[in-house]
Design a protein around this nucleic acid. Structure first.
Lengths: 253, 253
DNA sequence: GATTCACGGTTTGCATGGAATCGCCGACGC
DNA sequence: GCGTCGGCGATTCCATGCAAACCGTGAATC
C-alpha cells in the first residue's frame, strides 16, 4: 500500500480512483495485502495521499469484483481465499478457452497466433526461465488465444478470470519442471491449432489447464504465506498482516 | 428516473447507492432512459432526493457494467445500443448454457429441474400468454439451467449477460407464435435433459437461442423507440429522450 | 470470578464545498 | 458571410464536514 504514483508537479487528469484501485490490486497480487487483512478507508487515503472519496471509489469497485469486502461501519478486509471458488473459476476458464479454440479452428484467420509462435515455438536455449515472467507469459498466451477468437465480451470475462486466479498462477511456476511442461504444452497446443485440429487442440488445452489446476490445488494458505515472506522479506507487514489468512486482525491504532 | 423508493419516516440502512443504481437500471430497461440520453449527476440527485455521492457510486457502477458512459466534465449518457456487442453476448450465452447442459447431463442431480417441469411441461390451456411475463420466465428458465449446473461463477457471469440483453429479450415475445415456440422448445429441451441426452439437449438449446437471436436481430432502433412509446405513452420524455439513439442531445437547462 | 451495560473512539455512509475543465455562445476580425 | 478566440456557465472530480452505527473497554453488579 505504497503511495500512489502521482507524477510530481504535472497534474495528470487520470482519476485518482483508478490509481488507488490499481495500487490496492497490485498490493493484493504481490502479497503486500494478505487475505483477511483489515484496513480502513482513512488508512488507505493517508498512504495514497488522497482523500477518502477516490479511495472509496476504488474499494467499492474492488468489492464488486470480489477482492474486498466491507464490514458495516467497521472497516474493510481482503476476501479470504476461497479455493472452491478458484475451482469454479478454473472450470469457467476451461469452458471459455475451449470455445475459443473451437472457433479458432473453424475460422479462417489465425494470423493472430503468429506472435505466439515466435514466443513459444523456440529452441530450449531461448526459453524464459524466470517463474514470475513465465506466469505473465502464460497469462498472455491464454488471453491471446481467447482474444484471437474475436469475441470481445468473452475476452473481457476471461480477462477478469485471469486476474482473479493470478494470485495462484504465480505459484504455478515455482518448480522448474512446470516451466518445461508449460513450454511443451503450449507448443503442442499451438501446433494443433495451426493444423486446425480442433479435437486435439481442445484435449491438449483441457489437459494443460487441468494440470495447472492440479498444481495450484496443492497450494495451501501456509504456502502462500511462505511465498509472501520469501518474495518480500522486507515488505511492510503490520501485526495483522503477519498472521495467516484466517487471523482476526486486532484493531489498529 | 422517478424518485428513489425510500420508505417515509423509517431510516432504511440499505445503501442509497444501491437504490439509485436499481432505479437507473430499471429506467434503462423500461425505456424511460433511452440510449444516447444525457444527464448530469445533479439531475439524478435531485430526482432521487439524495446527494451526489451515492448517485456517483451508482453511475460509476453502471459505467463499469457497460450501461452508461461518462464524458469528462460534460455529463453522463446512456450507452448507445451496440448490436455487434449483443451478438457477442448471445454467443457467450450459448457457450455458457451449452456447458451447463453438458454438465447437467453428466451429473447426477437434476432434481433442480423439477420446478422447471412444473412451469413448462403444462397443458396449453395453463400457459402464460403475457409477453412481458413470459420474458421474465424465459430469463428464469435459462438462469435456472445454468445455476443447476452448480458453478456459481458461471451463474454470476450468465446473470450479467442476461441483464445486458434484457432490453432486447423484452421484444422477443411480442409475436404470439414466439410464445408458442418458446413453450415447445423449452419443453423439448427439458425432456432431453431429463433423458440425459446431452447431444440432443445441446442442439435444441442452441437452436432455441439462435432463433431468439434471429428475432432480435430484426429489431431496429426505430422499433425500440416505438415499443417505448407504446409501452409508456405518458412517460416522461424530454427533448433529448424523444430522439432515437444516435441523436445528439442538446444541453439541458 | 463472571456477566452486563454504558461510554468513548473509530469507521462507514452521506452531504456539501471548492477547484479544474469542458463545451457552448457570442463578439470580433477579416 | 465565415472562421477564430475569449468568456462563462455547467459539470465532474476531489476534499472535507457530519451523523449514525459498531466495536472494544472497563466499571459496576450479581
Amino acid at each position: 500500500m505504497a503511495r500512489v504514483g502521482k507524477p510530481r508537479g504535472s497534474s495528470r487528469r487520470d482519476h485518482f480512483g483508478d490509481a488507488v484501485y490499481a495500487q490496492i490490486k497490485a498490493d493484493i497480487f504481490d502479497f503486500r495485502l494478505l487475505p483477511g487483512a483489515r484496513f480502513s478507508e482513512n488508512e488507505v487515503a493517508r498512504r495514497a495521499r488522497v482523500s477518502r472519496t477516490p479511495v472509496r471509489e476504488a474499494l467499492m469497485r474492488l468489492e464488486r469484483e470480489g477482492y474486498l469486502q466491507v464490514h458495516a461501519k467497521s472497516g474493510w478486509s481482503v476476501c479470504p481465499l476461497d479455493f472452491a471458488q478458484f475451482d469454479h473459476l478454473y472450470d469457467l476458464r476451461v469452458v471459455l478457452e475451449l470455445a475459443a479454440v473451437q472457433k479458432l479452428c473453424a475460422g479462417k484467420d489465425i494470423a493472430a497466433l503468429d506472435r505466439l509462435r515466435a514466443i513459444w515455438l523456440v529452441s530450449p536455449s531461448l526459453r524464459v526461465v524466470d517463474g514470475a515472467k513465465l506466469a505473465r507469459m502464460d497469462e498472455e498466451f491464454h488471453s491471446t488465444l481467447v482474444a484471437a477468437a474475436g469475441n470481445p465480451e468473452v475476452a473481457r470475462i476471461h480477462h477478469g478470470i485471469t486476474e482473479r486466479i493470478r494470485i495462484l498462477r504465480r505459484l504455478d511456476f515455482t518448480h522448474p519442471e512446470r516451466i518445461i511442461y508449460t513450454y511443451r504444452e503450449h507448443a503442442e497446443i499451438l501446433r494443433a491449432l495451426l493444423a486446425r485440429d480442433a479435437d486435439r487442440a481442445s484435449a491438449l488445452l483441457r489437459a494443460h489447464i487441468e494440470a495447472s489446476r492440479a498444481v495450484v490445488q496443492t497450494i495451501t494458505l501456509h504456502r502462500l504465506h511462505l511465498a509472501h515472506l520469501d518474495a518480500k522479506p522486507s515488505a511492510r507487514t503490520n501485526g495483522a498482516a503477519r498472521k495467516p489468512a484466517a487471523a482476526r486482525a486486532p484493531r489498529r491504532r
